[in-house]
Each structure stands twice: as structure tokens, then as C-alpha cells.
Amino acid sequence: MSALAVYAGLGWRRWSAYRTAAAAGAFTNTVFGLIKAAITMGAIGAAGGMLAGYDALTGATYAWLAQALIGPVNVFTWSELAERIRSGDIAIDLARPIDPQAGYLAADLGRAAFQLVPRAAPPLVVGALVTGLALPAELLPYLLGLVSVTLAVVVSFACRWLVNLAAFWLLDLRGVMTLYLVASNLLCGLVVPVHWFPPWLATVAAWTPFPAMLQHPIDIIMGRAAGPEALVLLGEQVAWAIGLLVVGRAVFEIGARKVVVQGG
């Protein structure tokens, strides 16, 4: 257990070493937030002031929260594990006296913990100044939201872990990664809230883990899902996290059994 804590600490330290990179990421998230909030508010205005339960202010808040969370949750691609599989460095991970999946998960949680404030605060502050934010006044949604964001990081990690494992069987993962990026970005609610989807697309999204990565935490923080509804969303996130991690372990075992690393 203490080894995992060390991994989490290393994840934090590794990412906190590059301050400029964190600032640049936050800046880009904020500029996209400005554009996204304008598009969202424009669409809600065109719909007569209300769209799928969002008015202009809550719509803009959704856009800003999405921009705030994409850094910590990391809804984009991650190819570190795939590169280690390809280069053979995975052998080092296999030789360590710690479970590789648990080790990488701990490091990813450390990364997310570091990025939470530097990546989320700038878009939210700019959002509060430019459009205003509709956030609940009581404490509970934020506490549940913190749990939900943590679970979102785990779900996101479990998905990225699985995509990376394809490197055991494929030489070039760029196409696979791009398709994952497309599917996850649309279905997690980054592009537009899942609640705006036409029914058939909403059904597709509901059958994937992607809403658990962004839409669920935002619904909980904004108080759109409160009380028992919030617990249902949290339960869904837990189920996806456990299910995907278990599948990820099984696939890793199969892949690791076939891997042949040249000695040297």
C-alpha cells in the first residue's frame, strides 16, 4: 500500500515539475472555454432561452466545468504504456514487486491530484468573470463532486489502459487512439452535453463508460443530479471503474504472456 502511495506521489512530482506546461494547458482550456461557452449560450438563446434543462447561465457553467475537468480527468489520449510495450520497457514494469495496473493507476491519480487546481481554477475564474457561473451554494454537491471526479479519473485511466494494451497485438496505435479520442470526446459530453443528444445517440452514450468520465461529475457538481440521483450516478461510475479495471487486468495478463522481450 505504501508503495502505491509513493507512486501517487511520484505522479504528482513528475507533473508538477513542468509548470509552464501546466500553465499553457490551462490557458488553452480557458480559450476553448470562451469559445465553447459562447456556442453553448448562442444555441440556448436560439432555442428560446432553455435547452434540455439548461438556461444560458447553466449552459455556460457546463462548458466551463467541462474545460476545467478535461485536464485532471484526461479525456484525451495517453500512449506511455503502449510505448513501453513496443520498446520492451514493459519488462521492467513486470519485474517490479508491484502490480503494474495498480502502480500506473496510483501514478495517474497523483497526476490528476496535481492538475486539479492549476488546470481547473483558471477556466473557472475566467468563466466566473466573463459569463458568471451557476454553482450550488451548499457544500454537499462539491464533496460528492470530488468523489465523482476521482471515480472519473479511474474510469478514464481504465479506458486508456485498455486502449494502450492493443500495443501487444498492433504495431501502430495512432489510428486506434484517434478513434478512441473521437468516440470518447463526443460521448463523454465534452463536445456538447449528453442531455442535448437526440434519443438514439443518448442511448449509445448510456451504453458506454464515457459519460461517467465527464457528464456525471458535472451533473453532480452543478446539482443537476442531487440526492438519490447523484448516488445512482456515483454507483454507475463505481461499476464502470471496477468492470473496466477487471477487464484491463485480464487483457494485460493475456498480453503479457505472449510478450517476448529481447534480453540485453
Binding site: 489510428g175 487512439m177 463536445v191 445517440l201
Partner: peptide, 27 residues
Amino acid sequence: SFVLDLIGAVGIGVLELAEVLVIFSSI
């Protein structure tokens, strides 16, 4: 690899189109 890359690029184009279409499905 090239075909997979190409499909990925088509996917990105479709994603961006989907955003416009989803927005215009309500307005």
C-alpha cells in the same frame, strides 16, 4: 497503418460534424 490513420482522420471530421448536427437538432 495508413488506412487506419485515414479512418481516424475521417472520424475526427465526423466528430466535428456531429457537434454541429447535435446542436442543430434542437435549434
